[in-house]
C-alpha cells in the first residue's frame, strides 16, 4: 500500500493523472474529463445507454476494429511491396518467414468482422429509430462511413495479388465500365463523339481512372495500395471524428425523449 502510495505521490504520476482513484463522483467525473481519449464520453449517460442489450456495443466494436486494422496494417506495410514483381511473394513470406505469422490473418478477419459490425450497428440504429431528429445528419455521416468501410475492404482485397484478388477486383471494377455516360460500355457513352473520334473509350472512362489502365495490372495495384493505406483511412478518420462529435452534440446515445 505504501509502495502504491509512493508511486501515486510522485511528481511524474501527478503530471499524468490529475485526479485521485475514481471511487467518488468528483474523481469519476475528472477521470473522464481530464483524459483526452476518454473525454469522447460525457461524464454521465442514460442507464439505457450503457445497457449492452440496447446498444449491442456495435459502434464501439467497429471503432475498435478500425484501430486493429490500423495497427496490423501499419505492421504489414513493413513487409509488403505493392508491385506485381513482389506483392504475391511478400504476402506468402508473411506466412512463412515472419515469427507469429498471423498478422495478415488478424488484418483480414478483422476487416471482415468490421464490415459485419458496421451493418449491425446500422441495424441497431435503425431499429431504435436513432436516426430521427436531431440525429439526421449523423445518420448520413454514418452511411458514408459504411461506404468507406466497404471501399477499404475492396481496395485491400487486391493487394495479395493472387487469383482471388485480381478476379474479384476485375469483376468489381468492370461495373464502373458500365456507368452511364462516363463508362465506355454504359448507355449514352457512344453519343459523346468529336466527329468520328469517340470520347469515352476503354482508355478514357471512369474505370480507366479507377484502375489506371485498360486492365487490372501493375498500376492498379499501386493505386489501390495508396487508396487502401492512405487516402480512404484519412477520409474515414476525419468522418469518424465528425461522427463521434455529433453523437455528443446530438444528445449522446439515443433514448426516449
Amino acid at each position: 500500500m505504501t509502495l502504491l502510495k509512493s508511486i501515486t505521490e510522485t511528481q511524474i504520476w501527478k503530471s499524468l493523472f490529475r485526479h485521485k482513484y475514481p471511487d467518488n463522483p468528483r474523481d469519476q467525473a475528472l477521470a473522464v474529463l481530464s483524459n483526452v481519449f476518454l473525454h469522447l464520453h460525457p461524464i454521465k449517460v442514460k442507464k439505457s445507454g450503457v445497457r449492452m442489450s440496447f446498444t449491442w456495443c456495435m459502434g464501439g466494436i467497429t471503432f475498435f476494429l478500425f484501430l486493429v486494422e490500423t495497427i496490423t496494417g501499419v505492421l504489414l506495410m513493413f513487409y509488403y511491396r505493392p508491385t506485381v514483381e513482389f506483392a504475391f511473394n511478400d504476402i506468402k513470406a508473411l506466412r512463412e518467414h515472419v515469427p507469429l505469422g498471423i498478422m495478415r490473418e488478424l488484418h483480414r478477419w478483422g476487416a471482415h468482422a468490421m464490415v459485419i459490425s458496421v451493418w449491425l450497428h446500422m441495424l441497431r440504429v435503425f431499429l431504435t429509430g436513432s436516426y430521427k431528429p436531431p440525429r439526421e445528419f449523423n445518420w448520413n455521416v454514418g452511411v458514408i462511413l459504411l461506404v468507406l468501410t466497404l471501399l477499404l475492404s475492396f481496395t485491400g482485397y487486391l493487394l495479395p495479388w493472387d487469383q482471388l484478388a485480381i478476379w474479384a477486383v476485375t469483376v468489381g471494377s468492370n461495373m464502373a465500365r458500365a456507368h452511364p455516360i462516363i463508362g465506355h460500355e454504359g448507355p449514352g457513352a457512344s453519343f459523346l463523339q468529336l466527329g468520328d473520334v469517340p470520347l469515352v473509350t476503354a482508355a478514357s472512362d471512369v474505370r480507366f481512372a479507377l484502375i489506371s489502365g485498360r486492365v487490372v495490372g501493375a498500376a492498379t495495384l499501386l493505386r489501390f495500395y495508396v487508396l487502401h493505406c492512405v487516402a480512404i483511412p484519412l477520409g474515414a478518420g476525419v468522418l469518424m471524428a465528425v461522427h463521434f462529435w455529433r453523437v455528443r452534440k446530438d444528445g449522446g446515445i439515443s433514448g426516449p425523449m
Binding site: 482508355a203 481512372a209 489506371s212 489502365g213 486492365v215 495490372g217
Partner: peptide, 12 residues
C-alpha cells in the same frame, strides 16, 4: 487534378 488520375503512358 482529376486529369492527374488518367495516365498518358500505359505499360501493356
Amino acid at each position: 487534378t482529376a486529369r492527374f488520375l488518367f495516365p498518358n503512358d500505359l505499360f501493356e
